[in-house]
Design a protein around this nucleic acid. Sequence first.
RNA 1: GCGGGUGUAACUCAAUGGUAGAGUACCAGCCUUCCAAGCUGGCAGUGUGGGUUCGAUUCCCAUCACCCGCUCCA
Length: 522
Amino acid sequence: MDTALEEKRLQEITALCKNRGFIFQSSEIYGGLRSAYDYGPLGVELKRNIINEWWRDMVYSRQNVVGLDASIIMHPKVWEASGHRAGFADPLVDCLICKERFRADKAPKKIAGEAVTIQLADKGKAKEALDFIEKNLSLQLTRNKKNIEGAVASERGYVCLNCNSPFLSEERQFNLMFRSFMGPVDPMEEVANAVENGNFEGLKGKDLRQAMEKILNPSTVFLRPETAQAMFVQFNNIQRSMSLKLPFGIAQAGKSFRNEITTRYFIFRSCEFEQMEMEFFCHPDEDDQWLDFWKKERMNWWHRYANKPENFKFRQHSPDELAHYSKDCYDVEYKFPWGWDELEGIANRTNYDLKKHEEASGKRLQYRDPESGEMYFPHVIEPAAGATRAVLAYLDDALDQDEIPDSKGELQKRTVLRLHPRLAPYKVAILPLLRKEGMPEKASQVADQFFQAGINARYDEVNAIGKRYRRHDEIGTPYCITIDQDTIEDNTVTIRDRDTTKQERISIEEAVDIVKNRLAEG
RNA sequence: GCGGGUGUAACUCAAUGGUAGAGUACCAGCCUUCCAAGCUGGCAGUGUGGGUUCGAUUCCCAUCACCCGCUCCA
């Protein structure tokens, strides 16, 4: 697929989401807020259905997995122990020559004084760079085609990872966690007082920052950047209260927050996102086999709701991209319009988290084997999936176009969202053929039957029947039930299948069971 | 956050330094007996804030949002 088509695909999905009430931009009337999205009447159903399916599979289908819904704001020490406070504050640097921004710890290392050749994209860029160096840095260097020679590495010990330049901006901290303040008094007031009293007099840079942090820290809290930590922190309470024996899992779905440097691709990467995470605690000798087990389970789950399972695959992390806590990790990737990208990470976190929290809290977070009496840190296998990413993946997987004949027999394009029935926002649409002769009343009664059966049905009488069929095709409603004159006479209705557009005449009594059975499939 | 691009109605697109139009969609009514029908009427817009100007949607500046590249990540 070429770039133009990929872009068009994502636009199609975004447009459908807005037009049909799935997903809107946050605060749209005020110009929108960066990378924040609201799930509309249909989107909330789709997202909830996905999370419910996950919960059903993880918690309701297994004897050894239990649920948790922890608070989003946790004790600040949780994030110190987990490494997020340090790890989420990456020092970033701008290259003064090529304008590249990069993480200081990822840049090529050089010894101070070592000669480096700056490599630009072309001769023109190299000439510009040479001018810039002469004017702004007062250095005379020489140009050789698109390279600039004669520069030396500075005492910082690294150079630009793009062009090799040693001419770099200061390192700047970007805290990737959302900071907030707990307590009735705004801590800015205390900062203002300190300034007024001259407490910061003479302080600069790092020292000034530290002095201000000291005032802010007592009331500082962070929004969780992942849901996982609560499962570790509550390990003891959950294990004891539920009398759990290894191996067992704790599952949680909920919101997490990260100040991403860049957000991109609609809801794919946003600062506020929803996760579905499970921490599976097992004996240290069994972690590899459980990782394998959960890989299989999770891929089965992704495939269950997919029209095109070939668009889901595993990618193993290479040793240098593994997170500091993780021994082995596989991503479930989906072939998004812009390419393969991550949906879920299935990681072997070893005993890193429990150990860290035991150290930091001074509370024992080990498991005592009831038979042998042995005390040990369980190892943890973590399948951590993005719920909001799942929404986007399944929308892309389901969005399709085909052709069906119109009333004149000519083929017309049809947009159809081939969502798995359990993911579909509405399971069935109840449509009076005409708005007269008692059809609306009869249709209302049929809709009530579905509501009583706990099935989300949609009564819809707006526009001509063909248009209503198309509308429900577009939002993924698997069935349309139409009430016509025969219904009034003999209590039969037509039921239309979204994917085939074929209709069948059935009795009203059968209708609920047909839909129910379809929902139970697969 | 850096670099590049874009910004007119819910959508697709017109026009203009001097009263912003159309199609689709949406709403109401009429008509309609199964796959985006018709008729009538209606709602609705220059992202935001400044500047230049008698007058700015148009020119300039800033800002915000989105898209592309880098980066980061579930």
